[in-house]
Simulated assay, not measured.
Amino acid sequence: MGVYIRPSTLSQALDALAERPYTPLAGGTDVYPAQANLAAWNRAPDLDILDISALPDLCGMEETPEGWRLGALTTWTEAIEGSLPACFDGLRMAGRTVGGRQIQNRGTLAGNLCNASPAADGVPPLLALDCEVELASKAGRRRLPLSDFILGNRSTARRHDELLVALLVPKPRRPARSTFLKLGARSYLVISIVMVAATLEVDAGTVTAARLAVGSCSAAAQRLPDLEAALLGKPCDAALAAVVKTDHLGLLSPIDDVRGSADYRRDTALTLVRRALLDLTDKAGEMAA
């Protein structure tokens, strides 16, 4: 039988993690289904659970001079309904595809990242926002780019004595908009086949920064640096989608599985990247930071 504790302060939580490798539990929307699946095959391990749901330091979203700080206990519903600016539109769109309303009410953004599924809906839009994660332990705090935090399928850079305490999003330098597209077998309660998130910063009708990420096509969602560089300085109009070439998606390594073949995923990713750019160019006139 595993140990269960529910500390009321961050200090207590970090003390516990320094003593043994607990499994942090926030909304539980990933941990419980995984345990139930293993239990059905009599393979469920006895987990030592650190319930972090009562830690006030991990709650809330705030704007800072540098950007926005989203506490690790921020739920999808809070992100969707909160007063975040237009550059978070892609994250809101992703949130509306996460499970159903009950999952959105309980599931947390940080939990989605720590679960590190290749199909985690939150990863592409947060990559496209240049998100960093803040990790805390008794030894101190450190920040990592999200791209360095998620190492692969169900693998992160979090040490056993650390807790992810916040997501940090920098302010864009120019007016910015973002979008998110997801292909699945249906609109809700579905694991994605391909996901694409894109953020554009635009000044005087010209792209000054571009960040695009593709999920469900690699062990971890991938940014597209070659495409991002190719988009710089281009007019933000309908011709922007034509810049996208197959070679720009060369970092992707999709697999064949029950949801789709690798070739299908590559073709779909190319189409969705172009559609994401068309969506953003349609909104170019509305852009505001």
Rank of each mutant, 00 (worst) to 15 (best):
S117L: 09
N42V: 01
P125C: 09
A54L: 10
D51N: 14
V123W: 11
S147H: 11
E78K: 09
A44V: 02
D46A: 05
L146H: 08
E63C: 10
E81V: 10
C59L: 11
A110Y: 07
V133W: 10
D46H: 11
Q35L: 08
E81R: 14
G122D: 04
R96I: 10
N112T: 09
N115Y: 12
D51L: 12
A128Q: 02
I52P: 09
E62G: 14
G82M: 04
I49S: 08
L38N: 02
M93C: 06
G95F: 06
I49R: 14
C114L: 12
E78C: 12
G152Y: 05
R69N: 02
I80C: 13
G152F: 09
P65I: 06
A44F: 02
R143Y: 12
R43E: 02
D46V: 01
E134P: 12
D48Y: 00
A54C: 07
T74P: 15
N112W: 10
G99Y: 08
L127T: 03
E66I: 11
T108R: 07
C59S: 08
P118N: 07
F149R: 13
L127G: 01
S117N: 10
S137P: 14
I49P: 11
P125V: 07
N105L: 14
L91D: 05
N37Y: 06
A110E: 03
L127F: 10
T97C: 14
T64K: 15
I52H: 08
L91M: 12
D148I: 08
G152K: 08
N153F: 13
R96E: 07
E62R: 15
T77G: 15
L151F: 01
Q35E: 03
T74K: 13
A116W: 03
M61H: 11
W68A: 04
S117E: 04
T77S: 15
E63A: 13
L146Y: 07
C87D: 00
I103E: 07
G107C: 10
F149H: 09
E63R: 15
R142H: 04
N153W: 11
W41E: 00
D46Y: 00
E134N: 05
T97L: 14
